[in-house]
Design a protein around this nucleic acid. Structure first.
Length: 293
DNA sequence: GCTCAGGGTCGAT
DNA sequence: ATCGACCCTGAG
């Protein structure tokens, strides 16, 4: 069945379980393609889900006010069918650090983004601050993405692989990517040519999917885990970046163990300790670390 | 102007 | 396993 579609002009309230904090979620370093804007006097965010322009605003009691052609796609984006209580119930019972982190951002959710956008963006994320990643995304979208209109404002969809492949590495560099341009261009080419297909991910378990992603140039373990978590709905994926490395070592281990633990051991420990929804725990801790360190 | 580091990855020891 | 190079940008 095709998704139910409505007139693009309507503003629809989508109820969300718990108290979703839209702004916090869109600004949590998972997604980099939304800009704050006003629509009909309402403060919110404009961007695209795939090719479709959407407007998003807080609707009270955790609901989302949205204008979108495909409202179910908005529900999928915020993973509203994954109940928050169920996720929290899987967390380790006596973890004061995690509890403290959740208290800092109880409205934070894990998104499920279009896989390609997520993969492309995290390839550009290496050694970059969130503000820089946002800027690269904007430059790429403005130059190579399709222009769409929502509420009198123009937004640019994330460019398709074919568009970036055709653009060439040098043009990507002009968007401020630096050495990341090579990885992004080669990945775009592999997908545009049909040599590789992101749909293959669906048939793989987490470990195999991670290995498959790491065959792209510019994708290591951390980026692969980000794609699994933020783009594939793989809730157990646990990306460890410099922030996570710091917060885990400092809050979960004594000074001696902290120094001896290898990155690999830390990764294993985290996946086991936080369980099947480890990725969600990761996002609370990441946000917590960014705010408090 | 200069240094420094920022959601890492890759290739070489 | 560990180590330096890698592009670019804003903050100090």
């Amino acid at each position: 069945m095709p998704a139910k579609r409505q007139k693009a002009g309507e503003l629809v309230a989508v109820p969300a379980d718990g108290s979703l904090d839209l702004g916090q979620t869109l600004d949590s370093g998972q997604v980099f393609h939304f800009e704050t804007t006003r629509l009909g006097g309402i403060e919110g965010w404009a961007g695209c889900l795939g090719a479709d322009p959407v407007f998003l605003a807080p609707g009270g009691e955790g609901a989302i006010l949205t204008r979108a052609r495909d409202v179910p796609a908005v529900r999928r984006f915020f993973q509203l069918d994954t109940p928050l209580a169920e996720i929290r119930a899987t967390f380790p019972a006596a973890d004061a650090v995690l509890e403290e982190a959740i208290a800092h951002c109880p409205g934070l959710r894990i998104l499920r983004q279009p896989v390609w956008e997520c993969l492309a963006t995290f390839i550009t994320s290496s050694l970059k601050q969130v503000v820089h990643i946002r800027r690269m995304s904007l430059a790429l979208r403005r130059r190579f993405g399709r222009a769409r209109r929502i509420g009198g404002r123009v937004v640019h969809a994330y460019p398709e692989p074919a568009a970036l492949a055709a653009a060439g590495e040098a043009a990507l560099r002009e968007c401020g990517l630096g050495y990341r341009a090579r990885g992004l261009h080669r990945t775009a080419e592999a997908l545009a040519s049909g040599a590789r297909d992101l749909a293959e991910l669906e048939g793989l378990d987490d470990a195999a999917a991670r290995a498959w992603l790491m065959e792209f140039h510019g994708v290591g373990e951390k980026v692969a885990n980000c794609v699994l978590l933020f783009g594939c709905g793989r809730h157990g994926a646990f990306p460890i970046d410099v922030w996570m490395d710091r917060v885990l070592r400092e809050r979960y281990f004594g000074p001696r163990k902290r120094k001896r633990l290898t990155a690999r051991e830390l990764q294993r420990w985290a996946e086991g300790h936080f369980g099947p929804f480890a990725g969600h725990a990761q996002q609370y801790l990441f946000h917590f670390a960014r705010k408090t360190f």
